[in-house]
Design a protein around this nucleic acid. Structure first.
Length: 554
RNA sequence: GCGCCCGUAGCUCAGCUGGACAGAGCAACGGACUUCUAAUCCGUCGGUCGCAGGUUCGAAUCCUGCCGGGCGCACCA
């Protein structure tokens, strides 16, 4: 019996009580009965607080309601024991057979276990990183790469159709500064003070100068533009290669300048104009974002006729919506949190519901510590720790896992020395090791002529305390995934995996799976083998939601 | 000045969106391998959940005000 099944049983019992008139509720039945796993095992396998929540609506003491429900549940199949505890909690123990059946169900579901269709039909756009193509990606971007990709995976697992998108800020003054920096460096001149100063600028400039000598012959202004475009092209290739290596793949690379070139900016502004929130003042075109919580109105077209960056943002949002996405998710660094109200106001001004159609996630920036010292990351100052450098040090798995382990809004410190360490200071190895151990058992089983057979094992034999603990942990994956998707919090998956791995290790410690020596294989061996296969699937499926590999051996 | 995020064990951090005595890892100390991977397991030590009020059967969680830290407030990109 899974928590979802239990929840349904209790909801049905509740509905029956109401239908019979045994319970009168003011208002509707609760949409869902929440099932929790109590921390204290004396409180049973599962606990529910429906009775406490309904007390007010029913106008009766919670314990009375709980008693009514308990009487009904006592005879339900799969439930071994029900009791009312404390102020009105409903504590349930699940029968061994019903509990053990979970393992077989997981094996039968295979790689689909943990997936659901709660978001079926939703087309979700996840935009993240969106760096300027003026240099290598650094560790700051890496958090969004790991997180954004994992959010995409989790949403897809919940049934959504996901498009991952990278918005290229390839237009405007920063690009020109980049071009000027390259042109200067190529000519052996010092880069402008407000330009880009990293070593990579010099390298890139000299490569371009060698590969495309004709560019250096151009007149000054054309030369800057030529170096800018060539540098841009190469940086983009570089960024994509680095992200590929980090297992982060984008479905769409959206160019800001393309948005202008094919008039989607104009089109977007027209669409917004139809909604009636644009006005002209002081020769400029404004959007009345203050109608929707922004602290000031924003300019779309300056009095000199130039489009603002905000115009691109607005048009880009309209473009996404016209491609059918809802919600459009944005991952932004904390240094951009001022954009939240602005972006939500764009959605509102476009006639959308910001709570439904847009979701702006703010992530705290990562602090980087190496050798006990904090590194200050600045591209323009040239003190970059690039994504590639860090990946080379730590490996993709360790880095991805570490970055996905924490909620985005919690400030995190990446200690390079720690992530680099391939010891059990590193939770990723703890989880991977469990998976390798499980794989090993299954390999050895094959050697003994045994295989996990979900159809013929006896689920009631999985009655050991450690087996029950493990089964209940495994049964949690679907709701962990659902919640991770709903809240856009993949770290829940990581934490869940750590707990489940620990639960497995404890099981392993006490419960022998395979027959020893000349021992004949019995029904308990077969049942445990199914449990092992189920556990391996859960860890493997969970790791893949984070984009981390599940090794067969370590 | 206005706004957003954070403050939980010595350290790094969870805390299931209000539940039953506040958790994990690391660090410290002590145990467990002749048979499925010891990258593991078990035990001990460790907390006024920043402070003060409020909401209620019940608050680390929600509200208000302080304190401390990070970040942001352009016809910039």
């Amino acid at each position: 019996m899974t928590p979802e099944q239990l929840s349904r049983v209790v909801a049905d019992a509740l509905a029956a009580l109401v239908a019979e008139g045994a319970l009168v509720l003011h208002g509707d039945l609760p949409r869902e009965v929440r099932v929790e796993r109590p921390k204290v095992k004396e409180h049973g396998d599962y606990a529910m607080n429906v009775a406490l929540q309904l007390a007010k609506q029913a106008g009766r003491p919670p314990r009375e309601i709980a008693e009514l429900l308990a009487a009904r549940l006592a005879s339900a199949t799969g439930i071994a024991h029900v009791e009312v505890a404390g102020p009105g909690f409903l504590n349930v123990r699940v029968g061994a057979g019903a509990q053990g059946a979970v393992a077989g169900a997981i094996v039968a579901a295979g790689e689909a276990y943990g997936r659901s269709d709660v978001l079926r039909g939703r087309r979700v756009n996840v935009e993240f990183i969106s760096a300027n193509p003026t240099g290598p990606l650094h560790l700051g971007h890496t958090r969004w790469a790991a997180l954004g990709d994992a959010i995409g995976r989790v949403l897809a697992a919940a049934g959504a159709q996901v498009t991952r998108e990278f918005y290229i800020n390839d237009r405007g003054a920063q690009m020109d500064k980049f071009g000027a920096s390259l042109a200067a460096a190529a000519a052996g001149q010092p880069v402008p003070d407000d330009g880009y100063h990293g070593d990579y600028v010099v390298e890139l400039a000299s490569q371009i100068a060698v590969d495309r000598p004709e560019l250096s012959e151009l007149p000054a202004d054309e030369r800057v533009a030529a170096f800018r475009d060539e540098g841009y092209r190469r940086q983009l290739v570089e960024q994509r290669a680095q992200l590929d290596g980090f297992r982060t793949h984008f479905d769409v690379w959206a160019s800001e300048s393309a948005l202008h070139d094919d008039d989607r900016v104009k089109h977007g502004i027209e669409r917004l104009r139809e909604q009636g929130h644009l006005y002209e003042a002081d020769g400029a075109l404004w959007m009345r974002t203050t109608d929707f919580g922004d602290d000031r109105d924003r300019v779309l077209v300056r009095s000199n006729g130039a489009f603002t960056y905000f115009a691109s943002d607005s048009a880009y949002y309209v473009d996404k919506r016209e491609r059918g996405f809802s919600p459009c998710i944005y991952l932004l660094g904390a240094d951009h949190h001022g954009y939240v109200n602005r972006l939500r106001a764009i959605a509102a001004c476009a006639g959308d519901d910001p709570d439904r159609d847009i979701d702006v996630l703010i992530g705290q920036l990562v602090k980087v510590v190496r050798g006990g010292q904090e590194l200050r990351l600045s591209r323009r100052a040239g003190t970059i720790l690039s994504l590639q450098e860090v990946v080379d040090l730590t490996g993709v798995d360790a880095l991805r896992y570490t970055l996905c382990r924490f909620p985005a809004d919690s400030p995190m410190t990446v200690d390079i020395d720690l992530v680099t360490r391939t010891s059990n200071d590193n939770p990723v190895y703890y989880v991977q090791y469990a998976h390798a151990r499980l794989s090993s058992i299954l390999r050895n089983a094959v050697g003994l002529g045994l295989a996990a057979d979900a159809d013929t094992y006896d689920p009631a034999l999985l009655a050991h305390q450690r087996e029950g603990d493990l089964l209940r942990a495994l049964a949690d994956l679907p709701r962990v995934v659902e919640q991770a998707a709903a809240l856009r919090e993949p770290h829940r998956v990581a934490r869940y995996l750590e707990e489940t791995a620990a639960t497995f290790h404890r099981f392993y410690d006490e419960c022998r799976v395979l027959p020893m020596g000349d021992e004949e294989a019995g029904d308990l061996h077969r049942a445990r083998l199914v449990l092992v296969a189920a556990t391996r699937l859960v860890l493997g499926n969970g790791l893949s939601l984070l984009g981390v590999t599940a090794p067969e051996r370590m």
